[in-house]
């Protein structure tokens, strides 16, 4: 059964927005840029509605292959992430299409605002995933299920193509209006698909597979989180 859930999002994480916009933690000696960012945050503060659809599936990890019942996929990284899990939540989350409209609009009107809108959208959908996973964690722990960090197609060696199977099993278009084009781009653009493993034992901190940037091998990425 596919469930759909709407979440209220927490306040903006400005540090993350700045990171996505490429201005990092520096305080800029440019009031106009700071003003532009606050205008963008102000304009978007009420436009987001986080929607998630998800299913729970039994899984089996066999070597590098993960059997998620609806599909099998070969991925060392995912296999590692899911080791010790007997089920997983597969989900798709979207911050909605409103932000796409603003990004398109500002590319015509003010390219710097478009850049900030892009950054805000990225931050919002990540926040949504966090909120959803926090909720899953709480629900899961009631039944003594412990979560692994979420894992998305494109992380490590999990192929982007796997999104096709995920979108299909989640009936995303119908449930939350997310669709995938032939190039595997999602619309609305600020959407994410991911897999969250659930095991009977909590994962030991030091054995945790990497989360977010840590799981990615592209070390020279401009957006990489600095520890």
């Amino acid at each position: 059964m596919i469930y759909t859930k709407v979440f209220t999002l927490p306040p903006f994480n400005e540090a993350e927005i700045r990171r996505y916009a490429g201005i990092g933690r520096e305080t800029l000696d440019a009031q106009s840029v700071e003003d532009c960012l606050s205008q963008c945050m102000n304009e978007t503060k009420d436009i987001f509605q986080g929607t998630v659809c998800y299913v729970t599936v039994p899984i089996r990890v066999c070597g590098d292959e993960v059997d998620l019942q609806f599909a099998k996929v070969k991925s060392k990284a995912l296999a590692k992430n899911l080791s010790g899990c007997e089920k997983a939540v597969v989900f798709a989350a979207t911050a909605g299409i409103q932000i796409d409209r603003l990004i398109v609009k500002y590319q015509k009107k003010s390219i710097s605002k478009a850049l900030f809108m892009q950054a805000i959208g990225a931050e919002r959908v990540e926040s949504l995933c966090d909120v959803f996973c926090d909720w899953l964690k709480e629900e899961g722990e009631k039944q003594k299920n412990y979560l692994r960090p979420r894992f998305s197609p494109g992380y490590g060696d999990l192929p982007l193509e796997f999104q096709k199977d995920m979108v299909k099993v989640l009936d995303c278009t119908k449930k939350i209006g997310v669709s995938l084009n032939e190039s595997l781009l999602m619309t609305p653009s600020k959407s994410v698909t991911a897999i969250v493993g659930m095991g009977k034992l909590p994962c030991e901190e030091n054995k945790l597979p990497g989360k977010g940037c840590d799981s990615c091998s592209k070390r020279d990425c401009d957006y990489r989180k600095v520890k």
Partner: peptide, 12 residues
Amino acid sequence: TMFLPQLLMSAE
């Protein structure tokens, strides 16, 4: 010494 948003605002 300057960041992308600054470059863009100047361009605008």
